[in-house]
Every structure is written in C-alpha cells, then in structure tokens.
Design a protein around this nucleic acid. Structure first.
Length: 423
RNA sequence: GGAGGAUUCGCAUAGUGGCCGAGUGCGCACGCUUGGAAAGCGUGUAAGGGGCAACCCUUCGCGGGUUCAAAUCCCGCAUCCUCCGCCA
C-alpha cells in the first residue's frame, strides 16, 4: 500500500500513476473521501470513549443516589460508544479496502505505455546464425526428447497440460542450475533459504498477489492456504510484523522454491513444451533495504541476474518494462530476455522489481534508525527460473547432431560433462 | 485425531472486574561516579491512529459476548509445548 499522506497531499501524482498503469483513477478520489470519513468517525469515537472512561471511574467512586444517576448516564454513553465504534470500524475497513486495491506509484523513469512500450536498455551477446551454420535448430521439446531430459506427454497424462517431468540428464540439469545459482548468491552475500511454498492469506495479500493477479494464484480451499507463485512471497512475509534494525540492512535472501501459476489469462499462449507451465522451481533473490537505497539495490539485482546469464553464455537483452505491464507492487521492473532460436525472438527469463515501501507497509515491516521508525523498501529478482533457463540452454547451445554443449561454468555441476548427448 | 498446559511492552515474568496501557528483572540509551572500565546509583525505554501542541484514543494471540466498566468472566478460533494415536 502507498502512504495515505501522499494520497492526501498529492492526489494528482497518484492519479497520474494510475493513468500510466491503465488503472482506475477514480479510486484515488474515493480513497480521499473514505480517509476523511475514517478520521472524522475516529475522532467522534475517541471523544465518546474518553468521556465513558471518566464516567466509569466516577461510578466506581460514587455511592447511593449519585451512583444510580451516574450509572444511568454511563449506560446511555455505552450505547453511543458502541454505535460510534461500529461506525468508525466500518469507515476504517472501507478505507483499508480501497487502499489495498490501489497499486504502487510508478517510478517517473519507467517508460509509460502498454506491454509493447518497453525500452531496450542493452543487448548482450549475439544470437547464432543457424542458416550459416547449415542446420535448422530443433526446439526444446525435440531436444529434450532426444536427450531423454524432458517428458511432456507423461506430464500431461499424470497432471494435465502445462506439466512435465524432467528426466535423466534433465533432472540433473535442474540440480546443477540450482546449485550454481545458490553458489553465486552465497558468494554475493545472500542467505540461502528454502521457504514454505504454501502461505496464509496475509502473506499473499501483503505481497500484492490478491489484486488483479489473484486469478493466477492457486488456493487450497479446505485449508485457506495459497500455493506461492514465487519465493518472493514467503521471503517478503518472513519479516512480517517486525521492526528491523537499520544497521542490519540490506538483508539479502536467496530462496529456492517451487512456483505455482494457474496461467488463467494465457490460454493458448506458449502451449508447447515447458516454457509456460503451472509449476516450476526457481531461485529468487530478495532484498530489504532503506528506501533511498532501493534504486541502487535494483541495479545490483539486475547485475547479478546478468552475471548468471553471462555464465550460461546466453545471448539476451535487458528491457525497462512499461508502466502498463508492471505488477501492482512494483514501481519499476527490468526483465532479462534470452534469445530463443526457434521463436526467433527474445523472451523473458528473469525479472527484477523495485517494490519501494509498498509491500513493507502491507506486511508491516519497518526499520528502526535511532529513534525513528519507518517503512523500508523490498526488491526481488529472478536468479534462475529453472524451466526457462533449460529451454534457453538447450536451444542456444544445440549442435547439428542434437547434442547440447554445456557452458563451462556449469560443467563441474554436471559431473564434468562438456556435452549432453542424445540417448 | 484425542487429553492437558500455555499465549502480556526486545527477552523473562507479575497481574482473576474499576487505583492496569499494565509492575518487576534482564537488555538497551543517557547521566552521575571513575585515571579508565566493571560494579553501583539515577532517569528513560512497545506499536499504531488523531492533534501545531498539551493531550486523547486503540492494541494484553485473534474474533465474538457479558458489564456502566474486561489483560482479568463466558463462547469460538489460531499458534506453541507435553503425552497418546497415526505417519513421510
């Protein structure tokens, strides 16, 4: 959630942000009105309650007729207090609901527009020219079959569409990638974490996934729990309701977890293979830092993502995602898109978002600096989304005979294999 | 799943209807003391909302209820601990 004071004092700024996102501007005015009502009804309740306390103490001291008279007054007050309390609670709940519905204010540096209005920040590496090399590249499904690494048919048989098995060297490849990602993260000072993949509503709500993104979240009705779509959720909620010592910041966690996504809005999109699936494993970076350091931390997260892709020798580009395509928590987002030969284009393999104080306000995570207590910033970034990296690796490093070259940095995590051979 | 116990200000605890938003110890901060430190002594030390401020209000796991008045009584739920059962 954003700061109510910002909405009170600079509603135009928030309106402009909503417009840039393509979201409802009138929410801002509704919120301003709801906030006024909340404060007014709060003052009314406070006043009555203070009076009730005074009278209550008088009752305890009084005797005889005086006590009877005071008791009558107190009873009358009690009714009024109850009514005022209900009204105040309702007004607060109303304001809270609107506040939770409002997305974070976008960073002015983010390009304004829809999904296609991103800005390419840089391009790294050069896509291979398979025509010049004299063969037609196979896609990851075909390569996965040749190598005995991916079984999508049986994934569908057992669990339905968008499920898969990683088999043989495919399974080993996941372990190798995860190990490599964790090693890098630890070297950079991250604390490795294996968080729960099922979380309570407060964690999901607090990270901002129950807004427009709600339709993509799996919910376990019987237990009122959610399956996380990213380790970002349990890593953010880890410090829920805590006040962190400013001297301990930044706190950096690298979480390994399964990621579950309903893919509700993407029927018919990327249906082949394991590019877009309902479940995959992922190593996610997560930072807590002072708000004024968030932009620098964001740049660092991006640099770590690039370091990882570099070690995998993948050609990719970095884009500054447009305002209309930001998650509700993010003020700014950078995606790394790897070149996917059989798609003839760059496609998202990592994503890093600066959520400023949006999540920490919702989750009630603050920092103590001397005698000052204030919200802090949270940021997240993908280090390794296993299935997408596997797709990129197989397709980019394939050879004419269907074998796949293993990038040097990954070799020792795969028992020294320099190449994956068809079975 | 069954039985019992617990949940209070960073930690440990006191508190069984009004003098309790709440005492004590530890920790922490500042001051005194000291050549310096420790010890000792003194003062302060939860969060949130409203207000220029004085100050007021909310919160004693969460949600209801009883009462003029609830940390305290009643009901429901959650979490943790112990024992039993089952189990990767």
């Amino acid at each position: 959630m954003i700061d109510l004071r910002l909405i009170r004092e600079q509603p135009d700024l928030v309106r402009a942000s909503q417009r840039a996102r393509g979201e409802d501007e009138s929410l801002v005015d509704a919120l301003v009105a709801a906030d006024e009502l909340r404060r007014a009804s709060g003052v009314h309740f406070d006043t009555l309650r203070a009076e009730q306390k005074v009278v209550g103490k008088d009752v305890a001291r009084a005797t005889g007729d005086e006590k009877a008279a005071l008791l009558a007054k107190a009873k009358d007050l009690a009714t009024q207090v109850r009514e005022a309390e209900t009204a105040s609670a309702q007004a607060s709940a109303q304001a809270e609901e609107l506040l939770l519905a409002l997305s974070n204010v976008v960073n002015p540096a983010a390009p304004v527009g829809g999904e296609a209005d991103f800005v390419v920040l840089r391009q790294v590496g050069t896509p291979r020219d398979f025509t010049q090399e004299g063969f037609t590249p196979r896609d990851h499904v075909e390569l996965g079959q040749l190598l005995g690494a991916i079984d999508v048919e049986r994934g569908a048989k057992v669990s339905g569409s968008r499920f898969y098995y990683l088999t043989g060297v495919g399974a080993l490849l996941e372990f190798a990638l995860v190990q490599m990602a964790m090693e890098q993260a630890v070297a950079a000072g991250f604390q490795p974490m294996i968080p729960p993949a099922l979380v309570k509503p407060a964690a999901m709500q607090g990270t901002g996934f129950l807004g427009q993104a709600a339709e993509n979240v799996y919910r376990l009705e019987a237990d009122d729990l959610y399956l996380v779509g990213t380790a970002e959720v349990p890593l953010a909620a880890y410090h829920m309701d805590e006040i962190l010592d400013a001297a301990s910041l930044p706190l950096r966690y690298a979480g390994f977890s399964p990621s579950f996504r309903r893919e509700a809005g993407s029927h018919g999109k990327d249906t082949r293979g394991i590019w877009r699936v309902h479940w995959f494993d992922k190593v996610e970076m997560f930072s807590y830092c002072p708000p004024e350091e968030a932009a620098a931390e964001h740049a660092r997260l991006l640099a770590w993502e690039q370091e990882f892709l570099g070690k995998l020798e993948l050609p990719y580009r970095v884009i500054d995602v447009a305002t209309g395509d930001l998650g509700s928590s993010a003020t700014r987002k950078f995606d790394c898109e790897a070149w996917i030969p059989t798609q003839g284009g760059y496609k998202e393999v990592t994503s890093t978002s600066n959520c400023s104080e949006f999540q920490s306000r919702r989750l009630s995570i603050r920092m103590r600096e001397g005698d000052k207590i204030r919200p802090l910033a949270t940021l997240n970034g993908t280090l390794c989304a296993v299935t997408r990296i596997i797709v990129a690796l197989l397709e980019n490093h394939q050879q004419a005979d269907g074998s796949v070259r293993v990038p040097q940095a990954l070799q020792h995590h795969l028992g020294g294999r320099e190449v994956l051979l068809p079975i």
